[in-house]
Each structure stands twice: as structure tokens, then as C-alpha cells.
Amino acid sequence: MYDHILLPTDGSDLAHHGVQQGLSLAKALGSKVTIITVTEPFPVQATATAAGWVASPDDFASYDAAQKKFAEDILAATKAEAAKAGVEADTLHVPDGWAASVIVETAKHRGCGLIVMASHGRRGFKRLLLGSQTAEVLATATVPVLVVR
């Protein structure tokens, strides 16, 4: 039924719980997985710009290198976990993106039949104020989404 599962992760403990559940499901179903992490663009705040600070090319390069290393570490550890579980896994790092939209587009373009991801873990006003990548994926995905709490 779900022969290709997308497992998004940001490296957090909560996201790892979602990955573990996704790997267990993939093993039980004989599915392959794509593990994805998305890193956001360089955070240039309006207040920093208004205060007179302007990012240099070195700032951008340093940020990009740190984000790439961060993603490589997350994906390597998660791929090793998949291998240990006996699950075929591809990895994907998408830099300079917004997680929810990249997750939905990746599921569509890679032919994933299911997205398994962790919930945001927030409730009430904080959830309303801060929003959630998971909520956005749920609202926009064209494939089933399994949310792990």
C-alpha cells in the first residue's frame, strides 16, 4: 500500500520519534523511505538591517556551510538507523527552503504514498501564534500524512 514513505526530520528529539515510527512502519510494510531535512535561508532580520548591519558574502557562505554540515550529520545518522532496521533509505537535503512546502512538493515529485512526521508538540495559544510545519503539511499535502505524537 505505502511502498515509498517520506520521513522529514529537523534533527530534534521530537522529529526523531516520528522517524523511528516511520522506519518501523516501513520495515513492517517492506517500504523504502526518503529521509528529508530542509534548512531555511539566511535569516536577515529587518531590525538588523535597520540598525545598519548588512550581511557580507562571508556571512552567507559561513551560514550555508554550517547548514550543510548540520543536514549531513542529521541525514547520516538517520540513514544509519534505517540501515540498522533493514530499511532502504535515500536522503535529501533541501537548502534555502521552507519546510512544509518542500515536504509536500518532495512527496509529490518522488512518488511517496505517505508522509510520516512528528507533531509540533505545542498546544493552545502558542500553537495558534507560532503555527506548525506539521499543520501546514496536513493542510496542503495530496497524500496521506501520519502524525506521530
Rank of each mutant, 00 (worst) to 15 (best):
L23S: 02
L23E: 02
L23I: 06
L23K: 01
S24G: 14
A26T: 05
A28C: 14
A28L: 14
A28F: 13
L29C: 10
L29Q: 07
L29G: 03
G30L: 07
G30Q: 08
S31A: 12
K32N: 14
V33W: 00
V33Q: 00
V33F: 01
V33K: 00
V33S: 01
T34I: 08
I35D: 01
I36M: 11
T37V: 11
T37H: 03
V38M: 09
V38E: 09
T39E: 00
T39W: 02
E40K: 12
E40D: 12
P41E: 10
F42W: 02
F42C: 03
P43W: 07
P43C: 01
V44K: 12
V44E: 11
V44A: 15
Q45W: 15
A46N: 15
A46D: 13
T47E: 14
T47I: 15
A48D: 12
A50K: 14
A51I: 11
G52C: 11
V54D: 11
V54W: 13
D58M: 13
D59N: 11
F60T: 09
A61K: 13
S62M: 06
Y63Q: 00
Y63S: 00
Y63E: 02
D64C: 06
D64Y: 04
D64K: 11
D64M: 04
A65H: 05
A66P: 04
A66C: 06
Q67P: 03
K68W: 05
F70I: 10
F70G: 06
F70P: 06
F70D: 09
A71R: 05
A71T: 07
A71G: 04
A71N: 05
E72K: 13
I74R: 02
L75M: 13
L75E: 09
A76P: 10
A77E: 14
A77F: 06
T78Q: 11
T78L: 13
K79E: 04
A80F: 03
A83M: 12
A85C: 09
A85R: 07
G86W: 07
G86P: 04
G86N: 04
E88H: 12
E88R: 14
E88M: 15
T91G: 09
T91Q: 05
T91R: 08
H93L: 08
V94Q: 10
D96Y: 08
G97H: 02
G97E: 03
A100P: 11
S101Y: 14
S101D: 15
V102P: 04
I103Y: 00
V104K: 03
V104Y: 00
T106P: 08
A107N: 01
H109C: 09
H109Y: 12
R110S: 11
G111E: 03
C112E: 09
C112N: 14
G113I: 05
L114P: 00
L114Q: 00
V116R: 02
V116E: 04
M117P: 01
M117V: 03
M117F: 02
S119A: 13
S119N: 08
H120D: 09
H120M: 06
G121E: 01
G121H: 03
G121R: 06
R123C: 13
G124I: 06
G124F: 01
F125P: 10
F125L: 15
F125K: 14
F125Q: 13
R127M: 07
L128Q: 15
L129H: 12
L130H: 08
L130N: 08
G131M: 08
S132R: 07
Q133A: 14
